[in-house]
Amino acid sequence: MKHRTFLWFFLPSATAMFLFIALPIFSVVTQSVFAPHEQVIREVENCSVFGCTKATQIDQEATQALREAEPMGRYVGAAIYADRNHLALSEIGALWNRSSGPVDFLGQLLNLPFYGALAFTLTYTLLVTPLAIMLGFLIALAVNAVPRFFRGPMIFVSLLPMIVTPLVGALILFWMVDARGILGAVIQMMAGDPNLSVKASTPLMWTMLIVYGIWSTAPFAFVIYYAGLQTVPQDTLESAMIDGASRWERIRFVVIPHLLPLTTFMALIKIMDNFRVFEPIVSFSASAHAQSLSYFIYSDLGGETRLLSSAAATSVLTILGVVVLLSPVLVRTWRSFGKGAA
């Protein structure tokens, strides 16, 4: 295809992505280094024989003029990144000197909003991704073992947690684990504590969010593995049997290696998706116990005072996080796919 034709075909898509993905990234970066203007303070100096005294007053006109002249705000460089709500550099220094040991230090560190959100996001991503992939693999093995006739309806049911709107799916679970809901009642019965409430306990809230994550992610892994299982070479399986491989060994040495490339792909997609975990925290009204990076940005953007600069700084840090998280996979794709395309 000629460059010129390519350009025309690709133009609409490229324009949309440039205007609404590339430029916003630029805009986020700019916003994060500018803070809203403070009021202009004018210093008036009164000098007399005995020396000079200084008085200050707010210059309304100048403030207005300044805000119009520089709508972006004033340039503050990395100050927003370093403040308490983000990287909190000075607070960390103080904590390090004050804390009694590494455990205490970590505990205190997680009380800082940005590090708390980062910790939850990473915990969520790193727990949900492998657990959901494993659960999906088990479901795929189980569905593969039932007669063909039942598989259609089973796939239908299994797809539901994934297809349903995240906000809605999380709400449905949240209502069930409510202290007055069915699962909440079961949890209270098992714990033997009639006043136990998921809403009030941080560990329970984290657990519920992770359970929701696994519930909604496992179907994706299931579908991929199920399709993968249909293409496992039967000849290899049977010759492994003849060689005396047990059931487990056949799964371990034939099925799993066959499914491994799929797993890489799936882990990539799911790490991306889980890292942006957001809706369940809204649904569970969990912000008092668990915040994710996305939720942190959302709560800065919403409300009466839109803290655009703060949200922008968190966004930049989140984007950096995504890049770091993806870098091994990106490098790998680049190596393998780049050779093929060249």
Binding site: A14, S27, R276, S294, T333
Partner: peptide, 28 residues
């Protein structure tokens, strides 16, 4: 050409971007 591959790789990075980070770029 090779740029087709690069465009796809850029698209992959865009795909990984949490939408809310972009939203904070749109608002202003």
């Amino acid at each position: 050409y090779r740029y087709a591959f690069w465009l796809l790789l850029v698209a992959l990075v865009f795909r990984a971007m949490p939408p809310i980070t972009l939203v904070s770029g749109y608002l202003l």
